[in-house]
Design a protein around this nucleic acid. Structure first.
Lengths: 192, 192
DNA sequence: CCCACATGAGACATTCTTGTCTCATGACGG
DNA sequence: CCGTCATGAGACAAGAATGTCTCATGTGGG
């Protein structure tokens, strides 16, 4: 690295490595540092120079996932218009990150007692606020708590990502399946 | 142990060990053989005598989970009456096994390419058949595939189990939250 | 009373992964 | 042309978990 330093090369590489790690761990959540490095096309030494250890890598992926979710939330304008439409926009924006989200969602279950990343708390609050807003406007039913609807959104995203990756669901139906089930449920309605 | 042997003690112990292993792995999916043994109140040596290795233990848990699901399916009489009611009964029956199910569901994601247990395939088929029946009778919408609804059921069970274990959802609401969301979705309806 | 046998405790080798280190190489800028 | 520096390759130790083994113990039945 030149004296110009931290801005020019490391940043770019780091992000590329992170992306490829996300893609790999999405498919194989137990991949070793060696596999992550190979997948990124770099050596394990270089991987270790950019991420102090596996923990650091996972925490970086966590930050990436949170950032992508927040970006999706921004792009979906969660506070604008009908909550139902905002949710649809949100899931659509979230689709590319679904695999990473599924990985992080299950990864988080491993830390039983430990405190969770505050970023998740912020995101949870933001999503729960959307559901709460929908309840306030009368769009959403009030007998399902915002916390549960938030959790269910994560769960359905993960299920959807896995179902697609195993070929049980067509990837083009991903967004539709999730939003329709989450919003309308599986029961058939008389009128539209 | 007497000469009568394999039938009298081993079977009982094995099942007790399995139950306690399920309870532990439900909370901490990365628990060591040593921790599993301690949780069961036996030594690691004995644990190894009953289950050849960790793989064997997990496979036994898989068989247990499948058996419990099938038993729940039987008890819920999936083929009787309105599919909607059958699904409610099924989730209610499934509730005690939700934690184990969540563990097995995520565990299954680790085996990317490998063939999955045929027991799961049978169970999947049985659940999918319920949704298909509901579609045939006009109870369920036909734009959500039975395969996806089946996957969503697993996902919501897992999400529900985690949400309860982390205190985000009251355990008494477990069944209600899952069935109501899966059947009716989050949108508020004009008429009941 | 004695024997069989399951058990617990623990030693042991093995394997896998991680984290650290060194060194040679090659690119890039001055 | 030369020096700097990131990189790749690989050696290395440390730690964790697994699987196997032996041996002493105690219980329960004959």
């Amino acid at each position: 690295m030149s004296h110009v330093g931290y801005g020019c090369l490391m940043a770019v590489d780091r992000d590329l490595v992170l992306r490829s790690a996300a893609a790999l761990l999405t498919r194989k959540s137990t991949a070793t540092m060696d596999e992550v490095a190979k997948a990124a096309g770099i050596s394990r030494a270089t991987l270790h120079r950019q991420f102090a250890g596996r923990d650091a890598l996972v925490r970086a992926l966590e930050a990436l996932g949170i950032a992508e979710c927040e970006a999706s939330a921004d792009a979906a304008r969660l506070d604008d218009g009908p909550a139902q439409e905002a949710l649809r926009r949100f899931v659509k924006e979230l689709e590319p990150a679904a695999g990473l989200l599924a990985f992080l969602y299950t990864e988080n279950q491993l830390f039983e007692g430990e405190e969770q990343n505050e970023g998740w708390a912020r995101l949870d609050a933001r999503i729960a606020a959307l559901f709460r807003r929908g309840q306030a406007t009368g769009e959403f039913r009030i007998d399902l708590t915002p916390a549960w609807l938030t959790e269910a959104l994560y769960g359905l995203m993960a299920s959807g990502a896995w179902a697609v990756s195993e070929g049980r669901v067509a990837s083009k139906d991903f967004t539709y399946m999730i939003t329709e089930l989450l919003l309308g449920g599986s029961l058939r309605r008389e009128e539209s």
